[in-house]
Design a protein around this nucleic acid. Sequence first.
DNA 1: CCAAAAGTGTTAAAACTACACCCATGA
DNA 2: TCATGGGTGTAGTTTTAACACTTTTGG
Lengths: 235, 235
Amino acid sequence: MATRTKASSLPQPVSDATAHPRVAVTVDLVIFTLRERALNLLIVERGIEPFKGRWALPGGFVRLDETIDEAARRELAEETGVSQVYLEQLYTFGDIERDPRERVITVAYYAFVPSQSLELKASTDAAAVRWVAIGERPPLSFDHDRIVEYALERIRNKIMYVPIAFGLLANEFTLTELQNVYEAILGDALDKRNFRKKILASDLLVETGSVRGGERHRPAALYRFSRARFEAPRP
Amino acid sequence: MATRTKASSLPQPVSDATAHPRVAVTVDLVIFTLRERALNLLIVERGIEPFKGRWALPGGFVRLDETIDEAARRELAEETGVSQVYLEQLYTFGDIERDPRERVITVAYYAFVPSQSLELKASTDAAAVRWVAIGERPPLSFDHDRIVEYALERIRNKIMYVPIAFGLLANEFTLTELQNVYEAILGDALDKRNFRKKILASDLLVETGSVRGGERHRPAALYRFSRARFEAPRP
DNA sequence: CCAAAAGTGTTAAAACTACACCCATGA
DNA sequence: TCATGGGTGTAGTTTTAACACTTTTGG
């Protein structure tokens, strides 16, 4: 708290030369989903300068009447139409020249959205929105490549300890689908028997009793993630 | 990038009513050290309103000509005089009313400083600076209690996977001192033999060859943390 | 010689890895 | 009946956890 000094009580005062500076603050979103067994990323084509016509992460300015988390949720809903999904703050990037217009710091978030129930809408300043497989993404504007790298690193570490993988799936899913999520994020193959043993031993899944059939092979049992069991202390 | 729009190319434009808002941005520091085998926290007594006379974390406003990391390092140096220490961004807190004066978001950092080589200096706006054992800290101003809790959670998780504990010790240290760091952070006792086995197996320590004697018991061998071994791939 | 912390090994339990075949279904 | 993915167990290895005594020093 060394220098929180001489602040006016009004928002946005600019008169006092010794007052602290104000900077623009954005949220940028690394939105993941799973499509055709591959981890995908939502990117937008910028409709305005700077970087007009180039790809970037979705995001926008934080308003004065909303928290940063609320800004992130709002942007997420604007881009994807979803709201009840896994969203976590990633890191705050504040290099001086990261935005060519003026000093802008950005609080990056990442989100997991289930691939069904998605309606992409190009929002106001974006010319286009699309999903792209992680391995095929184009170079992004600003420092967004760095942000995506950091998000990937985070989820690769986190998925082993914290049950976030379910966020990429529908409510009910098969064990093979869940294994696909882990493989897509970790980027390599897992042993089927060991995976099932470990996941079931964690005791976070409940079998729904129904199966996913209709395909030309044996039907797979469906499971749900039990938040209750996750929050309850292990017996 | 949905709404990065209508920004002037000059810093701090305030004329356009539709321009995005600017907010004040601070860094707040959770600075840890080890004193008498206990984890300690640096707190300052605020010399100015709001919360004048109450305790808070050290921190200050981010300037336009420095990155957020630089602001954090600057504040850290101002408070403690140290610069080459472990410093990591923790989380960004942006509740609307977290500062009673105006909208202020803060990027929190935590740092590990070795307890020797410390010269505390009450900086400009602080009436006093002091170390306090984690368990005995007074309630803090703003949302700083929450920030400290979050920092504790982070380091308790991180210490098991990442070699950050060395940051609280001098360059050379005994295994018992290192074990004290782990115990102080984790808040409970570890088995001496298992601890030594695991730490030495990690292969990150090199024995210096000298011992710390002069006490009325057997002298302890001194070790150094080998950054080289940490960065090199395990053989 | 005594008090104090340094240092050291073994055993049992648990977790992890590698690995191959039969099952149920739709076409 | 066949192609396809679903489903299951075991054995070897590694990692973890529990536990107690001898050593070296200074006072």
